[in-house]
């Protein structure tokens, strides 16, 4: 049963990812990206990362996707009925990407990955919080500075020049 759910989620994620890169209508791509992001959040739960699954839904689906749809709406005229966009050189690009995938696949199969025994954690959020405040305090503060810089930068960039 759980296997069927897992493969259904994988199929949903990869299928909508294909739609994201192949569909010629930009808004359809954005909606397909929604399903991809939800599928990845579900895969996070299979990986016992419940907190990150929540973060994924809140930030990606609630923030980034809305930003992307804003971008689509702001960069097309209302009179343009079909918000479409074309792809170029799909053949060459597809072959190059298949080559990359082949190399990645061979690498995955041939590398002896380090694996250790694992037990299901009783809590993940508490350990993430402890790590953020102990071992990763400096990166945490740098991240907040980065967010502030991006906030000011985005406002300055998109303000109408006098």
């Amino acid at each position: 049963m759980i296997d069927a759910v897992f493969w259904f989620i994988v199929l949903l994620t990869l299928g909508s990812a294909v739609t994201v890169v192949l569909n010629q209508k930009l808004l359809y791509s954005a909606i397909a990206l929604l399903f991809t992001l939800f599928g990845i959040a579900a895969l996070y739960i299979f990986l016992w990362a419940d907190f990150l699954a929540g973060v994924q839904v809140v930030i990606y689906v609630g923030g980034i996707l809305v930003l992307i749809i804003f971008g689509i709406m702001l960069t097309n005229r209302i009179s343009t009925v079909n918000i479409s966009h074309t792809s170029v050189q799909r053949g060459i690009g597809g072959m190059a990407v298949l080559g990359v995938l082949l190399i990645l696949g061979i690498m995955i199969l041939n590398t002896p990955w380090h694996q250790a025994d694992y037990v299901e954690p009783t809590q993940t959020t508490a350990s993430i919080g402890t790590l953020l405040m102990m071992d990763y305090l400096l990166p945490f503060e740098v991240a907040s500075l980065l967010l502030l810089a991006a906030l000011i930068g985005a406002v300055t960039l998109s303000r109408r020049a006098e």
């Binding site: 990812a17 294909v18 890169v21 170029v88 597809g94 990407v97 995955i108």
Partner: peptide, 13 residues
């Protein structure tokens, strides 16, 4: 890996 390849395909085409 498949997801990465799809993203790369999107970026280059």
């Amino acid at each position: 890996a498949i997801l990465f390849s799809l993203g790369l395909f999107g970026v280059i085409t």
